[in-house]
Design a protein around this nucleic acid. Structure first.
Lengths: 271, 271
DNA sequence: AATATCTGTATGGTTTGACAGACAGATTTC
DNA sequence: GAAATCTGTCTGTCAAACCATACAGATATT
């Protein structure tokens, strides 16, 4: 075995739960539209051979899909992708988050899971550029549309700002509006990062997913005019219900071609 | 049991592999910076009690972390987060993808995994607005930086466009440049969607991850002046090595406040 | 030096997941 | 109607994961 100075062996071979893996794979294919609605899946023995597992395992995966209503099984005939199984997620643009939702006239509700003051973990403290021992207000919320949860939000706000509004205010008024209205800080700059993470127990519970599901994450830090942190937001989205979309236009002539974001985001009409 | 018309029971209780779950949880905490480098983790018995598992299970999780070099175990003393364990990912802005990388002067290589012509899956055909039975060129590539893979790219291009360049061209010249140079199509509009997905077997292998890891996904469809599809790209990124970042500025006066994207994205200096 | 705490290691028993194989019933095809 | 194919259901076997428990060696604290 070759042993290097820094032997970072990353690819640890763990392959648990073949049935679950197959389930997740098929589910992604269905909800992403690779398998069109109405189409018949390969037969159980065929899937078993294709993925190198037993038929029992294939059945377990299909059981899960059927339990979710993504798939319809007809004895003697086959397993079919249900119509309406590949629902495209709601789409949002970056600057005006959630504006599309409101325009659609859909019911968007918020549930507050926790609300307290504490000393922040090191990464939050660093991002907000807090003084040592400065406390923060931490709130955890779940956002729903049509009674279906789609985002899990963790917000950290410096105590001096958090105390200028109440818990009830937060439920009715957007955070930035509260801050600007209070006059204690003037949000000027924000940094947003989009990435991905796995669902932990709490998020899985709150979002109606299984543990280990893939989530889209967005981290936003809002800064003051003086460069002080105003808000740190960690958002976790169900990818099947929410996605970020950007329209780009090719502008400039040859030699100086460039992609520039279009102002008006289009909602995906979907199939 | 309440039974509604559409009984979509999503939350299927599956909780396999507790050791792996704990491993993923701790790994996220470490690489995201919640657990700062040098800090001691809770002891094995403490972790076991906290997460409701046996100490053996905790050890398995820590073994995986130690094997990756994220953590350092000292008998009799404790388990410590290694310095340099929380590496922030390379960052990219939307319009000028990868420009930050090039500016950094880092070595970016591409490996071609497959290249062939076939009939597209329904979702690709729909996205590109292809005629029935029109074939596409499909290529799968892996992009590396400093010999570390960070993105897995699946590209679908209509056959009529794909045949205007060779496999070798693709390795040296950006795709859009090839198309514009050939004059067969004039890319004008593009739609990008960012979401998340789980790593399947091939991606896990190519990106050096375990199956079921979280990936950031980006789907881009480029359109012609006539609204015909030119390119369909599915990109899968390792979240610990690559992330999307946007800088926003608060513009406009009171009454018409708005967030607008800043032109120059800043690279995260990191620790 | 004594004590408490922590990692390292080993044992045995229980539970769960995956497997091959077989058969019944439904459906489609010939 | 016969044959082939598919889902539904049931065995018994085997390996892996998880658990409780115990003890040795290293380290830090008192």
């Amino acid at each position: 075995m070759h042993q290097q100075g820094t032997d970072r062996r990353v690819n640890v071979a763990i392959e648990p739960h073949k049935a679950r893996r197959l389930y997740l794979l098929l589910r992604d294919e269905i909800s992403s539209g690779v398998r069109a609605p109405g189409v018949r899946l390969a037969s159980e023995p065929a899937l078993a051979a294709e993925h190198g597992v037993s038929r029992v395992t294939v059945r377990r995966a299909l059981d899960l899909l059927a339990a979710e209503g993504l798939v319809l099984r007809r004895p003697g005939s086959g397993t079919f992708v249900r119509h309406g199984a590949s629902a495209r997620p709601v789409v949002a643009d970056l600057p005006n988050m959630l504006s599309a939702l409101i325009a659609m006239g859909r019911a968007s509700k918020v549930r507050l899971l926790s609300f307290d003051y504490l000393r922040p973990p090191p990464d939050i403290a660093a991002a907000l550029a807090l003084d040592t021992d400065e406390r923060v207000q931490r709130s955890v919320r779940v956002r729903m549309i049509d009674d279906a949860p789609f985002s899990y939000l963790i917000t950290h706000v410096p105590e001096r700002i958090g105390t200028t509004y109440s818990e009830a205010d937060l439920a009715t008024t957007p955070f930035l509006e509260l801050v600007e209205r209070s006059g204690i800080a003037a949000p000027e700059r924000a940094v947003q990062t989009i990435s991905a993470a796995l669902a932990g127990p709490e998020m899985a519970e709150a979002l109606g997913l299984g543990i280990g599901a893939a989530l889209t994450t967005m981290t936003r830090t809002v800064f003051d005019r003086d460069g002080r942190g105003v808000e740190h937001l960690q958002a976790f989205y169900r990818p099947d219900r929410y996605a970020f979309q950007f329209d780009l236009l090719r502008t400039g002539n040859a030699g100086a071609r460039k992609w520039t974001p279009a102002d008006a985001p289009r909602a995906d009409p979907g199939p």
